[in-house]
Design a protein around this nucleic acid. Structure first.
Lengths: 212, 212
DNA sequence: AGCGAACCCAAACCTTTGTTTAAGGGTAAT
DNA sequence: ATTACCCTTAAACAAAGGTTTGGGTTCGCT
């Protein structure tokens, strides 16, 4: 393996972002993840995290709910708005059940009371990274379809959706006020650009982006 | 509205099943739900519930986690095995965060510490009933498709899946070792019995049952 | 002004699908 | 044994889809 490849691999390995205002916690977790050969980075506040972290990267966030400025739920919303879907594991020293329920409903993958054992944290992180991987996989599939759709002209897009509805060429022609011949040509372009050979496959790709 | 219709409506209204070994809690919740014009029934143990309750009915379950015999998670599994998908709201007098996380991960819609206010419980129940309604709606759609599939002969089913894959008649004929003519006839039956007029609609119905 | 892109149409041809009608063989239940 | 259902095929036609070739307009950008 050459060096360039190695760097790419390193930067695309999942990373664990630790956000806690307690230096002791940060160091302990950093050491724990490093000892497991996992990449990790620490931040002393949510704002520090939002400034410095690459929130699009594969991995997860381990975060104390009680933080100066932003609370956990606000932080989740903030991340979501910023376009990140990184799974979040909350830690808490004083948390109660209602807070736990809110966090879990909002999509947290775990909620861990302090103090915790290494194994509990590691299991939570492994699970979160697995979840992230699955999300990324389906997001990538949708992204691939979307990039194909981007290559279509507006008219081709219209024809595609009509075809996916199950309409016949002559019906599409009527809907769009053009001739059946023109529909056929657009349709051919659609099949080629969308990289499908059957209407069935086209329908599946269209459904994939419509449900997203 | 005649009487028969009214009865049907009454028995299909959502019901709240309360399971708690504390008579005081049962009575208080029963009164609360009754006062809101909601249907409710109480049980003093999980086994009592499993014997007497109609677990296929629309509604939800409000359940104390600490019960003789079955704990909350076992109860969830038991219900699932018995074919029920009723949303569960847990109540607890002594619960901790890990228990809350386990329950939420297992699909509980809420986890409420005792004591609680009426409003908290009512909000949780309303949410659970809404969730149940949505689940039932999509389950009904899948069930409708499945009942159509039941009317297909084995051969027709095979042809349907091959068509949904996007194969041409002659390819299907080769796969099944029959002539193209026969495929066409099966295909016609499929379209008629599945109540669709286009391959696009057929693909959508097939996808609906394949993802379930 | 020229260029490219998107959009439009037509003739001709071929392939695929849809439909009708008629009919034979197998199997399982009454 | 009769009935019913499923699976199979053929001939022949109608309808829809796919492809190629060639040509046209408009619009925006350089």
């Amino acid at each position: 393996m050459n060096n360039a490849t190695k760097i790419v691999q390193e930067t695309s390995d999942p990373i664990v972002y630790v956000v806690d205002d307690d230096l002791g916690v940060r160091d302990a977790l950093l050491e724990l993840f490093m000892s497991m050969k996992m990449k990790a980075a620490t931040f002393d506040s949510p704002s520090d995290f939002l400034e410095r972290a690459d929130i699009k990267r594969a991995g997860c966030i381990v975060l104390d709910v009680r933080m100066p400025g932003l609370n956990g739920l606000d932080f989740q919303n903030h991340l979501d708005t910023a376009g990140s879907k990184m799974p979040i594991i909350f830690m808490t020293g004083y948390g109660d059940i209602p807070m736990t329920v809110r966090a879990m409903k909002a999509g947290a993958t775990d909620f861990i009371p302090k103090p915790f054992s290494d194994n509990v944290m590691l299991a939570a992180v492994e699970n979160a990274i697995r979840v992230d991987g699955e999300r990324r996989k389906s997001a990538a599939a949708i992204g691939a379809v979307n990039s194909l759709v981007q290559t279509l002209t507006p008219r081709e897009r219209e024809v595609m959706f009509e075809v996916a509805k199950g309409l016949m060429n002559k019906q599409i022609a009527f809907e769009l006020g053009i001739t059946e011949m023109t529909v056929k040509l657009h349709r051919m372009s659609v099949m080629r650009k969308m990289e499908v050979r059957s209407v069935a496959d086209l329908v599946r790709k269209v459904e994939q982006i419509r449900e997203a």
